[in-house]
């Protein structure tokens, strides 16, 4: 049983945000977030535009998932994190290439393209930008 639709159009539609961190910026209150929106959820302004968000940031909060939803069992234990990007935008993603025990608050991370889930047996593969510790600056 899959609580997501294993078809290609929803994967394709979200590619700009999941592959390139395309989000939105509100020109009235300055709020930035993913994915692109038509209306700012903070101030209600429609004076918004698309923006590419930076690919580096730091871990604000994280958790280690031991009991996963269907389709993610393979990755357990995995780390989910609230990440603050270099411009202050907060996003949510999975960490990769790191031992869950070694994740610390404030750890610097960078985006890297990874497989996220497979839609059923032989179904379409969804990719996205996970985050890994910054190896060198």
């Amino acid at each position: 049983m899959w609580a997501f639709n294993p078809s290609i159009p929803p994967i394709k539609r979200e590619m700009p945000s999941r592959y390139r961190l395309e989000g939105f910026e509100c020109h009235d209150c300055g709020f930035r977030s993913l994915p692109p929106r038509q209306v700012c959820p903070r101030c209600g302004s429609r004076n918004v535009s698309r923006v590419r968000l930076p690919r580096r940031g730091r871990v604000l909060q994280h958790t280690v998932v031991h009991s996963a939803p269907r389709g993610y069992e393979f990755y357990t234990p995995y780390v989910l994190a609230l990440i603050e990007l270099e411009d202050g935008t907060r996003i949510f993603s999975q960490l990769t290439d790191v031992d869950p025990e070694e994740v610390t608050q404030g750890m610097e991370v960078e985006a890297v393209l990874r497989k996220v889930r497979v839609g059923g047996h032989g179904g379409p593969v969804a990719y996205g930008l996970k985050f890994r510790p910054v190896l060198e600056r």
């Binding site: 979200e14 998932v65 989910l80 889930r117 969804a126």
Partner: peptide, 16 residues
């Protein structure tokens, strides 16, 4: 599309 997609369970969000 932006929480569950990354493998968020309801518990994990409450953990944060």
């Amino acid at each position: 599309d932006y929480e569950m997609f990354w493998g968020a369970s309801f518990v994990s969000l409450n953990a944060l």
